[in-house]
Simulated assay, not measured.
Amino acid sequence: MIGYYAHHQGAGHLTRMRGIAAALDQPVWGLSSAAPPPGWEGGWTTLARDDDPHPGALADRDPTAHGVLHWAPTHHEGLARRSAQIARWAAEERPSALVVDVSVEVTLLARLCGVPTVVVAMPGRRDDRPHRLAYDTADALLAPWPRGAHDLHWPDRWFAKAWFVGAISRFDHRSLPDPVPAAHPGRTVLVLWGAGGHSTTAAQVEQARAATPDWTWVERSPGRGASGDLWADLQAADVVVTHGGQNAVAEVAAARRPAVVVAQPRPHDEQVATARRVDDWRIAVGCASWPSPREWPELLDRALARGGQRWSRWSTGDGAARAAAHLDRLAGDLVPGAGS
Rank of each mutant, 00 (worst) to 15 (best):
R277K: 08
H184G: 01
T274D: 01
P181T: 03
A273Q: 10
A259W: 06
A211R: 02
W231Q: 12
V252P: 05
V240C: 04
A211I: 13
R276A: 15
N247Q: 11
T274G: 02
L230D: 08
W217S: 11
V191K: 00
A253C: 06
A226P: 03
A183F: 02
T200L: 14
A273E: 13
G194A: 10
R209L: 04
H268E: 12
L190H: 08
L230N: 08
S221W: 10
H243S: 13
P177A: 08
Q207E: 15
A253T: 06
T201M: 12
L176K: 05
V272F: 02
W193M: 14
T212M: 09
H198V: 10
L234H: 05
T242Q: 01
R282L: 13
W281M: 13
T212H: 00
T200M: 14
E251T: 01
A211S: 14
A203C: 06
G223Y: 03
A255N: 10
A255Q: 09
A275W: 04
L234F: 07
H173W: 04
V240T: 05
L234Y: 02
V262F: 02
A254G: 09
V189G: 10
A208V: 09
L190N: 10
V239S: 01
D238E: 04
P213H: 03
G197Y: 00
V260L: 14
V261G: 00
D178C: 00
A250C: 08
T188K: 11
A275Q: 07
Q271G: 11
R224K: 05
V252F: 01
D279N: 11
V239Y: 04
A211K: 03
Q204F: 06
I283V: 15
Q207D: 15
H243I: 09
E270C: 11
A254F: 05
V180P: 07
T188S: 10
A248I: 11
A253V: 10
T212C: 15
A232H: 10
V252S: 03
A263W: 07
D233R: 09
A273F: 00
A211Y: 03
A255H: 05
P222V: 01
E206Y: 01
V249C: 10
A254H: 05
H198L: 02
G186K: 00
W217M: 12
E270R: 09
V278R: 00
L176M: 07
Q264C: 06
R277M: 15
G197E: 07
A203K: 12
R209A: 14
S221E: 12
L176H: 08
Q264N: 11
V180H: 06
D178T: 09
D214P: 02
A210S: 13
W193R: 14
A208K: 02
V191L: 13
R257E: 06
R277W: 15
A195C: 07
R257M: 08
V240N: 04
A226E: 07
Q204W: 03
V239T: 02
